[in-house]
Amino acid sequence: MVNMEKSYKKIEEITESLSKYLQGKDRPLRLALICFFSRGHLLIEDLPGTGKTTLAIGIAKTLGLTFGRVQCTSDLLPTDITGLSIYNKTSGEFEFHPGPIFNNIVLCDEINRATPKTQSALLEAMGEKQVTIEGKTYKLPRLFFVIATQNPVEQFGTFPLPESQLDRFMMKISIGYPSHDAEKEILKVGSKREELYSIEPVMDHEEAIAIQKDIEKNIYVSDKILNYILAIIEATRANGFLTAGLSTRGALTIVSTAKTNAYFNGRNFVIPEDIKELFEYVIPHRVIFKEEYESLDRKEVIRSLIEKIPTPA
């Protein structure tokens, strides 16, 4: 409550400093940050070349965090992500060499190209925030944020993530093409990827953790809001298009993203709009459609469902 104003300013600072490099990507940036501060992971489904990497690097740099990248291919092994022990001749012992997952922000490109075995190793690490290699457990950094990308077009030789795995991502978003003006600007100045590496961080590790804690502890969620969320969940479970509605994990996600959204809006309490703004990124990938309705627009179905639920006020 006390440092509300200050922290809110910080968030604004981050968005401002990054928007220079991410022209026209305000919304994905904001969503990614919400995801980060809600301690979740992000799945971006988009075509190559839309700025996923730029986004990931940008966030890592402004927050003063380390960044690792995994390009998934079908021959990628779990140890390529987690790291492995290598025998050191001089010391005569096995030395652990951590993989890219031991970074704060991990970009996992084209996750659907990796084999299920590798995918599950990654997803497990995301869920448990630790990895176990050769009987030894290694804690992942406290700030740990995975941005995985998926190419929706190329389906050949891919292993699409099963629904149960998708649930581990807090949000599923797409970046989309930049607007006409933004694209023109990009063309004019060229890619700013290089400059991105040299930007000054606006906050440090500790501050980011403090904000995460602040959001978790100090944002008030009224019973009215909880009832509203419950109404949404129950509606997904009773919906005729769906075989499975939202899980309890899904419900928890709605609460924590709504809290962060409220925080981002400079409020220390949640209002229904906080939920309504995010539902299309939080809900659709968590529900399972009946086979005959697979072809429907998932977002539209969820939207029509939400439109029927009255807000508390």
Partner: peptide, 9 residues
């Protein structure tokens, strides 16, 4: 106001 609309919305 639509029932499903939030106040700010």
């Amino acid at each position: 106001k639509e029932k499903s609309q939030g106040l700010e919305e």
